[in-house]
Amino acid sequence: MSTDKDELIEDDFPAQDEDEPQVETAKTNLSKRRTIDNLLEERRLQRQLADFDYDL
């Protein structure tokens, strides 16, 4: 019976080595998200410049 508990506990908690790739993936995803946000901001600003009435 104690072996069943040990197996469950081991399955619930991943080894430390498995956490490292997830951190790298999160950093990569954050970097991609920032790049996309920057591109969208640049497009928004370019539209504002194009729509700006310079005859004021």
Rank of each mutant, 00 (worst) to 15 (best):
K5N: 11
K5V: 09
K5H: 08
K5L: 13
D6V: 07
E7K: 14
E7S: 12
E7C: 07
E7N: 13
L8D: 09
I9M: 09
D11P: 01
D11F: 04
D11G: 05
D12L: 15
D12Y: 13
F13Q: 11
F13S: 09
P14W: 03
A15S: 11
A15P: 03
A15D: 10
A15T: 04
Q16R: 08
D17V: 00
D17S: 01
D17H: 00
D17E: 06
E18S: 09
E18L: 03
D19N: 04
D19V: 01
D19Y: 02
D19F: 02
D19M: 04
D19A: 07
E20S: 08
E20I: 09
E20G: 06
P21K: 00
P21Y: 00
Q22C: 03
V23M: 03
E24D: 10
E24G: 02
T25A: 15
T25N: 12
A26M: 04
A26T: 02
A26S: 04
K27E: 08
K27N: 03
T28N: 12
T28E: 14
T28C: 06
T28Y: 09
T28Q: 14
N29H: 03
N29K: 07
N29R: 06
L30G: 09
S31V: 04
K32A: 13
K32M: 11
K32F: 05
R33M: 09
R34Y: 08
R34L: 13
R34Q: 14
T35G: 13
T35C: 10
T35L: 13
I36Q: 15
I36D: 12
D37I: 07
N38G: 12
N38K: 15
N38W: 12
L39K: 12
L39D: 11
L39A: 11
L40V: 07
L40C: 08
E41P: 00
E41S: 10
R43E: 08
R43K: 09
R44F: 05
L45A: 14
L45W: 08
L45C: 10
